[in-house]
Design a protein around this nucleic acid. Structure first.
Lengths: 231, 231
DNA sequence: AAAAAAAAATGACATAGATCAGTTTTTGAC
DNA sequence: GTCAAAAACTGATCTATGTCATTTTTTTTT
């Protein structure tokens, strides 16, 4: 199920909301009463790498990117859709820092859960802890896949990969109106925007996709998948 | 403490044996009685990506690499020294598969702990589970650092990085006799062995290090660190 | 609706690092 | 200690992709 090498490396489909089902009524109540709902506009930063992580983030609605800040360019670790937990790796014995930055692609709503409450729950409820371990491990598999993709595949493979990912996981259909810019796609693939544009044109010329502005249609999934494997 | 961007990306110093201290005497006994000790020679494969992960691995003695298998080249995720747990990400609700391969750099001894027993312990003992979450998160931070290093730094930075890592963490002194080959260093840095050799020569010519065969001495840590930052 | 700003597209060029084809050195076996 | 095999090294290319400079298109603002 979890595909490490070769495959697609976009984001996890399974949602994280179910983990709260493992809490007792009292524990749920505790979370509910300590939950803060905050809205963010497109492009805003929800969490900043290195800063004190006071809360675990649950994305109610929206689309965000999780990334490491770099001098010339950032490294996007993953895209996270709604109903996912963000910031779990900040749960760390030492100081609870954000190990990455989080910013919105579109208007988003998040619930903030106090990190010490969250740790308390983990220490109280081992079934909940086990579920969180599951979520962390699923995430790890995802990041490994992306790590592999960005270090071992070359440009065509990476673009094919991201196109398939967008179709299959984000929009769940073969034709979609892309919410992100070419420059975002460049960040996502670790390429320059010029390269992304050139490769998209190539794919278009070869009948793999049709592109008109932000309207994309995947025409030849099979061939794209082949290219994604190691092209 | 955990350095994500910029810094060194080799492996984690803190050992994992302490996590077992959180078990009760009965639980410890259970682990002890189900533990299998196995020895591996240099270059042998301990775990194979994709195969069924029946056990969690604890490295008693030795040095191993954890890597994703790739067609032309593998991607080394991390080097793991003794007293570390390996294979924790296999703890996954679905099928327990190895999400990576594990092979020895040198003769090694491991303890194998049945994965369902391990899961059982996690479900029983929430303090233990919390500790495992900590270990997973520390690991995640490490991998992020390496991900950043291999995607954002160029060749000189990567080689400087690995040299510093070897000196600081593996051998814990500035002069050491390297156990791994240039080709292993290439794998570790994601470069070709020719490039590694050329850069080592360059560093040598510039008085940053001295190299004679497998004997390395770090001469100018400060400058190497600068190069490692983003060179 | 016009003007300004941002994003997308295109072409020319530069370059980091891979690949290839060799030579030299080291290691290991008998 | 000799020979064979592997590893280390070197130099000459090659190529994928980034960078830069410019134009066209789209989006946003007024």
């Amino acid at each position: 199920m979890v595909n490490t090498s070769g495959g697609n490396s976009c984001f996890i489909e399974t949602t994280h909301n179910s983990c709260f089902d493992l809490l007792t009524e009292d524990e749920k109540q505790l979370v509910e009463s300590h939950r803060l709902v905050v809205n963010f506009k497109k492009g805003e930063i929800i969490g900043k790498q290195g800063s004190f992580a006071s809360h675990i983030i649950f994305l109610n609605e929206g689309l965000v990117k999780v990334y490491l800040e770099g001098k010339p360019k950032d490294l996007i670790l993953k895209i996270v859709p709604s109903n996912h937990l963000i910031g779990l790796p900040s749960i760390y014995d030492g100081n609870n820092r954000f190990i990455y930055s989080v910013a919105t692609y579109s208007d988003s709503s998040v619930s903030l859960i106090d990190i010490s409450l969250f740790k308390q729950l983990l220490g109280m409820n081992s079934q909940f802890a086990l579920k969180i371990i599951n979520i962390l491990n699923e995430d790890t598999a995802l990041i490994y896949g992306r790590f592999f993709c960005l270090t071992m595949k070359q440009s065509h493979g990476r673009v094919a990969d991201i196109l398939l990912c967008l179709a299959k996981r984000v929009y769940k259909k073969d034709n979609f109106n892309l919410a992100i810019s070419r420059s975002d796609m460049a960040d996502l693939t670790g390429l320059s925007s010029e390269s992304v544009i050139r490769i998209l044109k190539e794919f278009k010329d070869n009948g793999l996709i049709s592109v008109a502005g932000k309207d994309f249609t995947i025409l030849d999934t099979a061939r794209l998948e082949k290219i994604s494997q190691l092209g």
